[in-house]
Amino acid sequence: MNLVEDALKAIAEQPPVKYSAKDFQSDQDVRWCPGCGDYSILAQVQRVMPELGIPRHKMVFVSGIGCSSRFPYYMNTYGFHSIHGRAPAIATGVKIARPDLMVWVATGDGDGLSIGGNHLIHACRRNIDLNILLFNNQIYGLTKGQYSPTSEFGKVTKSTPYGSVDHPFNPLLVSLGAEASFVARTLDRDPKHMQFVIKRAAEHRGTSFVEIYQNCNVFNDGAFFTYTEKESKDDHVVFIEHGKPMVFGKNKDKGLKLDGFTPKVVSLTDGTASVNDLIVHNEKDTMLSFILARMSSLPELPRPVGVVYAVDRPRYEVEVSNQILSAIQKKGEGNLEKLLNHGETWTIQ
């Protein structure tokens, strides 16, 4: 017998609800700084939710600490604003206990990659069905402007007046290195693309890791403008799509070609290369995923944005449930009386 299952069964199957984005807005005032990239992320998530066909009472948003972690307060779903860095671990417990729920994690570069780095990587490797949105603004916002684990080397902040001497993390590489089965990157200033990526993440079964370039207009304004603003975006971002060649540039006049294991930018107009020479994106190609993720380290290459990697592999919570079902099949439902009396016992008259 399980009380929770009973309680859930007692709820009559509801007809599919037609939601709008508005249905996912909570009654709480949004308290991010005006102009913050978080507003866009919230809006895109709320826009995607109605398309998922999942009742909102089946959704849980879990977060840690930081600006990004206020996210659950603003979603009209179940929400859990926890402690610094621990959201993936809490979400893991929720999902193992309740595989019927759709569980999201909202985190940031400090929360997810610094204090909570351990939980993030282990969630990825277990491939538990969580959707992790990592808002990367390369700064600590809520503590008012210290460098973060994704801040560039030499970053001058309140805590590094002479420049940071820390080498940054690359979130895509961290998640790929941690065996995530879904890895993607999107941009706060590209609503359509973000909606697409969030939907893909939601539909993926297993841990989905999404890095979102997010502008902190107070403490790190313009950190990603090269990749998000009209003037520079086309020449510095390559939007990758499964099965399509990697073309970019204002006039779609440039492409990426592999030279050994290193991508090189080639011109599609000067006769040196054609579309047929370009890398064709394959989301299931492990090796390619690492090459794409590594591109962020090479300034002469555009930043790949889109779904970098997406494969299916066994999910933790499913395996756990299967073991339980098979144990029950083999041994029958647990019987406490039997347990206490099994093995060697003796009777005193």
């Binding site: 206990a97 939980h119 282990h122």
Partner: peptide
């Protein structure tokens, strides 16, 4: 993965019922 995840996952499970 560590003691902290031990307890926080349990808190998550309790939250879930």
């Amino acid at each position: 993965e560590d003691e902290i995840a031990g307890i926080t996952s349990s808190i998550g499970a309790s939250y879930g019922g």
